[in-house]
Simulated scan of single mutants.
Amino acid sequence: MTLDADRILVLGATGKTGRHVTDALRAAGVPPRVGVRRPAASHAVRFDWHEPSTWAPALDGVGAVYLVKPPIDPVPPITALLAQARDLRHVVLLSEMGRERKPADDPERAVELAVAGGCQEWTLLRPSWFLQNWGPDGTWGEQVRRTGEIVLPSGDARFSLVDARDVAEIAATALTAGSGLGALTLTGPESMPLSELASRIAAASGRPIRHVSPTLEESQAQLRASGAPEAWIRYLAGIEADAAAGVCAPIHDDLRRLLRREPRTVQEYVDEHACFWARPVAP
C-alpha cells in the first residue's frame, strides 16, 4: 500500500486515542480523513455507528482505517462495515490486552477474528489500561477529582498502565506501514496496583487520593443504579474481572520496540496533570 494511492480514515477521531492518532499522522505529513458525527473541518466526514448510511461514504477510497469499535454489541456493525469497504486493505483495530485468551464468541475477540479473517492486512493493538482513564476527559477523571477516590474492583492486582499517546503513535506507524504489524500487546514500562497510582496522584496533587475496591457484584449494582445499559455493564464487568485476575499486570516489550524509545511513565503522566487533580470539584 502506498500513501499516494490510499487514504487513511481515523474513526473515533475525537476519542481518547483517535485524536492523538490524527495528530501523529499530521505530524508525519500524512493528514488523515476523520470520521465524526458532526463534521466541521474540510478533512472530516460524517460517520455514526447508529446510522449505517454514513459508513460507505466515509470509507469511499479509503485504503487504511483506524478502527475503534462501538462499545456495545460490536460484532454486527463491524462485520457489516468490513463488507462495505471495497477499497480497504489494512485495518488497525484498537482492542484490549488479553483478548487472545478469550473464546471466539467473546464479542471483542470475535471482532479481532473478523478483522484478521476479512482484511488483506491487519494490526491488532492490545493495550493495557490507559492512564488517561483517571485524568482529564477520562472515564473516571472527574470522579477522582470530585471524591478523591479511584473506584475499581481490582484489589491488589497490578496494571501495566500505558499512555494513550504512545498507543496512538504506534497506530499511526501501523497505518503508514506497507503491511500489517500483526497482534501487538502495548503496556507501560512498570506495573503497579491502583493503590500506588492513587498514592502518586496524591503526592503530586497535594490531596488525599485512595483506591477503593468494591466487589465485582457491588460494582455492577452501582452501575445499574446509575442507569447504565446492561450490555455496557456486562462489558465493563468482563474487563474488571480480567483486571482483578492480573491479566493486565505483565509488561511487554512491543511498545518500546516500536517506539524506539522508552514509553511514557506513570510518574510523567501524574506530574503532567497534577493541577487537574489538585482542584476538587464543588459539590
Rank of each mutant, 00 (worst) to 15 (best):
E262N: 08
S219I: 06
E100G: 10
V34P: 01
V45Q: 09
G98K: 00
R158A: 15
A83G: 09
P127F: 00
P74H: 06
K69T: 11
A203K: 02
S128E: 03
T147P: 07
G98L: 01
L236W: 13
L82H: 12
S53W: 05
S128M: 05
G15F: 06
A104I: 12
E217Q: 11
N133R: 04
G15W: 02
H90Q: 15
L3W: 02
Q222G: 15
P52E: 13
A157Y: 01
T185R: 09
V62I: 08
P250S: 06
R46M: 04
R145G: 08
D73N: 13
D137Y: 15
E51Q: 14
D254K: 01
T265I: 09
V212W: 02
R234C: 05
R145P: 07
P153G: 02
L255C: 00
R89Y: 11
T54C: 11
G18L: 06
F130G: 01
T139C: 12
G138W: 05
D23S: 03
V92E: 04
E272H: 10
P153I: 00
R126Q: 11
A27I: 10
G188F: 09
P193W: 13
F276W: 13
T54N: 03
A249H: 10
P103M: 11
E240P: 07
A221Y: 05
P283K: 06
A171Y: 09
L59V: 12
P153F: 06
